[in-house]
Design a binder for these strands. Structure first.
Length: 469
DNA sequence: ATGTGC
């Protein structure tokens, strides 16, 4: 701290911070100059570069901004066999926050006359905000353990969805190495009544339309065509994931001296992946990841019921992918712990973890925009940098307080409705805090992501109706 | 992000 961070521009979309001080690797920021954040987030890129076992670089995506310990839009991988660490701050409080996209077998013109009724129904059936309630009322601890161990797969087994849904979920709906015994009692309590709830902040459920297709072949493989209606769901693991992060940060803070680890920021609390504390966090994190997927599965099912009932219309899953997660992955023969925080995995065509029917197209990468703005579908590219990762959305540029001072919820609703976008918010205050003017421009972020060679654009989606958390 | 903040 106390010095200006030196950035070396290497290409229009690539900046480098050379190793200095305790940095073990350089920092690499994949962004255009206009997207570079305030100094604090760049300092966080530098801080992450000091973590034990980090390899290649401390990466940042174009939507980089300040976060807890790690920047949001940060990607960092550690070598497990070289004492590499796992850090809860490298995943964030909303473990497994992510996006699910479903497509309707209907075009926007046909749906238009039913839009208001559909939004009113979703407003009624999608639990969100501070209010209690969830789509799925778990009968007790046994069912919650099923959710934590088997995620969307358990939800489908229990009748909430169809088998094909799992083909289109990251990890086919469940991470294998969840350890329920590492989920504390408070986290369990908080999780019991929130499976199938949106939450608040930037979480939303949107009815959208495919406005533009950039790659016809890949879009067709994803089931997308121009004019088609789709539904995007953006949410995470609610209070359960938050509590797990809190609990394991505390546990790691205590044992860091024992492992001889020092970090420049206490928010970078970490432990070796190959240690009891590291394994404990990864087991609990995987359980929260499964919870997040089950959550999105249930919200998708509630939306399907509304569409079937009011529009006689089916919804097929395009994909479900997280943008807050650490994963054990093999890259160039090395076993790495890849942290993605506000960064989306973007597998290239023919990657072995893709479902067979998506192999030629690559992984669908789902980028939620800000309320009233576009969202994107992207795909992974061969040789993608940063361990096959890309951006996760438009990063915030204004605090919630600043945002709420700039506009009222009612004004924002009027402005959106003047653009033909129907809005159903949880609270006026919450709506105002999410004004699009408080965010970077998602089009600019996606252009930079493609320009930096992280992904390719497939389709641009525009909002028709918003159910806001 | 979060039964919002040490």
């Amino acid at each position: 701290m106390g010095y200006a961070i030196q950035l070396v521009q290497e290409t229009p979309y690539r900046f480098r911070i050379e190793r200095h001080g305790p940095m073990r690797v350089p920092g690499v920021i994949l962004a255009s100059r206009e997207l570079l954040p305030e100094d604090q987030a760049l300092q966080q890129v530098v801080n992450v570069a000091t973590l034990p076992g980090i390899v290649r670089a401390s990466y940042a995506m174009p939507d980089l901004h300040w976060g807890y310990g790690f920047p949001i839009g940060g990607v960092a991988a550690t070598d497990i066999t070289a004492g590499g660490v796992v850090s809860p701050g490298g995943v964030g409080f909303d473990i497994s926050c992510g996006v699910r996209l479903l497509v309707a077998d209907m075009d926007r013109d046909l749906l238009a006359p039913r839009m208001t009724r559909l939004l009113d129904r979703l407003d009624h059936v999608i639990p969100r905000g501070a209010a209690r309630g969830a789509v799925w009322h778990l009968t007790g601890r046994t069912q919650l353990e099923g959710v934590l161990s088997d995620g969307a797969r358990y939800a489908v087994e229990q009748g909430h969805g169809v088998a094909r849904d799992l083909e289109r979920c990251e990890d086919f709906g469940a991470v294998a190495d969840a350890d329920v015994s590492q989920v504390g009692s408070r986290a369990m309590e908080r999780g019991l009544n929130q499976v199938g709830s949106l939450g608040s902040g930037n979480h939303f459920l949107e009815i959208q339309a495919v406005e533009e297709v950039y790659d016809e072949a890949v879009a067709a493989a994803f089931g997308l065509r121009r004019g088609q209606v789709c539904v995007m769901i953006h949410c995470g693991s609610r209070g359960l994931g938050h509590q797990i992060c809190t609990d394991h940060v505390r546990a790691m803070e205590k044992v860091m001296p024992h492992y001889g680890i020092t970090v420049p920021d206490r928010q970078l609390a970490c432990a070796p992946v190959d240690s009891s504390e590291g394994r404990a966090y990864l087991g609990a994190m995987a359980a929260a990841a499964n919870y997040g997927r089950a959550n999105r599965q249930l919200l998708g099912e509630a939306t399907r019921r509304a569409f079937a009932d009011l529009a006689d219309c089916g919804l097929d899953l395009v994909y479900d992918v997280s943008h807050n997660l650490a994963k054990i992955e093999t890259h160039d023969g090395a076993r790495l712990c890849v942290h993605r925080k506000g960064a989306t995995r973007a597998l290239p065509p023919y990657h072995p973890d893709l479902p067979a029917d998506l192999a030629p197209a690559g992984q669908p990468v789902l980028i939620p925009g800000t309320m009233g703005t576009a969202s994107y579908v992207l795909t992974g590219v061969p040789g993608g940098e940063a361990f096959h990762s890309t951006c996760h959305g438009a990063g915030r540029t204004q605090s919630r307080h600043q945002a709420a001072r700039s506009i009222t919820g009612e004004q924002l609703r009027d402005r959106l409705e003047a653009q033909g976008i129907v809005v159903r918010g949880a609270t006026w205050r919450g709506l105002a805090e999410e004004t699009p003017t408080a965010y970077k421009d998602v089009d600019t972020v996606v252009t930079a992501s493609e320009g930096a060679g992280l992904c390719r654009k497939v389709a641009r989606l525009v909002p028709l109706g918003v159910v806001k958390g």
